[in-house]
């Protein structure tokens, strides 16, 4: 009899708490960005496709569906760390041997450009201007450094050049200042 009372009591308690929790879950539901949006915000939006998806958003969707978080070379370690925080998984190093490199932008050697428009078609962010049979050029401010225009170029006139440091963007790396030797 005691056993029965205990079981009933615990059962009732369980029911009550379950109901309370269920109510709380519905009533106090936290409205948050859908996961894909949050992931997409973390990704660097270079749209480079190096992850194997056509653009950042598809990759965000893939992560939300359980894909690895370490497929974004432009984002580098910091992006992986943020993704790991968000997804609650271990931060894994980049899956390729690609090290986090300096920021680069595409540069078209203009005297060699034949005006084939192939790079324009490849650029995911419309950062290359030009017309058929006319010279093309890269809008440096818009270029995300995704690399996608380099391969399609039939005459290999596109280089990825490191972005020049300006005094405004200088990172206070005093050790890197070349000191002139005198005498």
């Amino acid at each position: 009899m005691t056993l029965l009372t205990a079981l009933i009591a615990i059962g009732v308690l369980a029911l009550i708490f379950g109901a309370v929790l269920g109510f709380a879950a519905v009533r106090f539901k936290v409205e948050s960005d859908p996961l894909v949006e949050q992931i997409d915000d973390i990704l660097p939006q270079t749209q480079c496709g190096q992850c194997g998806y056509p653009g950042c958003r598809p990759y965000a969707e893939a992560i939300a569906n359980g894909d690895d978080i370490n497929k974004c070379p432009p984002g580098g370690e910091s992006t992986i760390r943020k993704l790991a925080d968000l997804m609650g998984v271990e931060a894994t190093p980049l899956n390729e041997a690609q090290t986090e490199s300096v920021k680069r932008v595409a540069y078209i050697r203009e005297d060699e450009c034949i005006g084939c428009t192939k790079c324009i078609q490849a650029c995911p962010v419309d950062a290359i201007v030009g017309a058929s049979k006319l010279m093309h050029t890269v809008l440096i401010d818009e270029c995300t450094g995704c690399d996608l225009c380099v391969e399609p170029c039939p005459v290999d006139c596109i280089d990825m050049v490191p972005l020049a440091t300006t005094p405004e963007r200088w990172k206070w790396d005093l050790a890197a200042i070349p000191v002139k030797m005198v005498e």
């Binding site: 997409d40 990704l43 660097p44 939006q45 270079t46 749209q47 653009g55 950042c56 995911p124 962010v125 419309d126 950062a127 818009e142 995300t144 963007r169």
Partner: peptide, 16 residues
Amino acid sequence: RETLKAEQAKARFEAR
């Protein structure tokens, strides 16, 4: 700067 640029890139990508 990067965040701003990422936003711009995203907008441009979507427009494209």
